[in-house]
Nucleic acid binder design. Sequence first.
DNA 1: CGAGTCGTTGAACGGAATCAATCGTCGTGG
DNA 2: CCACGACGATTGATTCCGTTCAACGACTCG
Lengths: 201, 201
Amino acid sequence: MSHQSFDELFVTARTDLKSLVQGEYLFQKGDAATHVYTVLDGSVRLVRYSLEGRAVSMYTARPGDSFAEASLFSPNYHCDAEAILPSTVACYDKEIILAVLHDHPEKNAALIALLCRQVRSLRALLEIHSIRSARDRILHYLLLKADPSTMTVKISGTVKDIAQDLALAHETFYRTLAQLEKEGKIQRTSSTIKIIKSALI
Amino acid sequence: MSHQSFDELFVTARTDLKSLVQGEYLFQKGDAATHVYTVLDGSVRLVRYSLEGRAVSMYTARPGDSFAEASLFSPNYHCDAEAILPSTVACYDKEIILAVLHDHPEKNAALIALLCRQVRSLRALLEIHSIRSARDRILHYLLLKADPSTMTVKISGTVKDIAQDLALAHETFYRTLAQLEKEGKIQRTSSTIKIIKSALI
DNA sequence: CGAGTCGTTGAACGGAATCAATCGTCGTGG
DNA sequence: CCACGACGATTGATTCCGTTCAACGACTCG
């Protein structure tokens, strides 16, 4: 079954659209949490910065995806939202969302389901992050992200961004990709990575 | 403000109690997801096992905590639940929970808030996992888990379990703890770790 | 046209994993 | 009741591999 999108649920809370240039921040940690968003075009990722300045990518929202729902009940955002491509996002007013939820009880279940999916995907990410070997981590990630029918992963944003999703130094990522391609396990173009299933042991 | 607990919300869905001996599995990945649980006593953790057999700890539920809510809308559990201490858990029937949600719209918001908190804590965990230095990772973890007034972390389960929460080899964990204690940054007993704030730079 | 950044590869370093060994404790069964 | 096995806690030595530093070409954008 396909799921109800955030937009379908809360169109009526949609207040405005925003355009972001690549690298622009939609909000930053600590800002008053006033809206929830969906991506219409481009990519927006949620990042936190560790004390040493390392960026930790929590989630990358692509067209159709919502983000910052977890701030519905929080007065402030707890991470930064950065456009990694030129992007447009739709903004939904938090107060209106809460009112809609109150007036339309049937929408609650859908939002709960959406949050449950989010929890599961965060756990999947956690699982990937605790694979120590760069090679296996990349392979797992690719298998997770690949379109099942074509076994192809589209690269949105830069390759460096993916390296950050994986919490790998970008050099390591380039190197390991090159090695995997030499072994025939993947095929690359500038914007895609195709997994050669038959070559995986 | 304090939050409504899962039990408060769904007592009426509570069907039975279960006792678990240390190391026992309450459910395993792939099992039909029929219940949601809360811990009354002991500790239960959610783990996945990577292909190489490494355990990845997703969440450790302590007395009062609920777990497996993310399986409310999923036919199967997507990880294992293992008691790391002798434990008792309360079981809540999924179908009844869904019915309660339907009949009591005011409880939806509370569950949504609970899931939002869960998302945030998973993100915090993700942040900790992407700290590369074992030392800093442990320090961050301790600061996150410590009771703010006493700056003390209670060790529930074994020390090895904590090492797994941190995705560190247990040897590395022991070693680094010993070093931190030698430096005066922490003080240990067999069941607690106290952080010496003044010694942190 | 120059500055900045991505993509890429090389070399060296450092730190965490791994292998290994010891001690203590707890439970179990003969 | 005690011997034995299992496992947690701990520390040492060694290996491995991902990070870091460095350098270079290509491209984009102002």
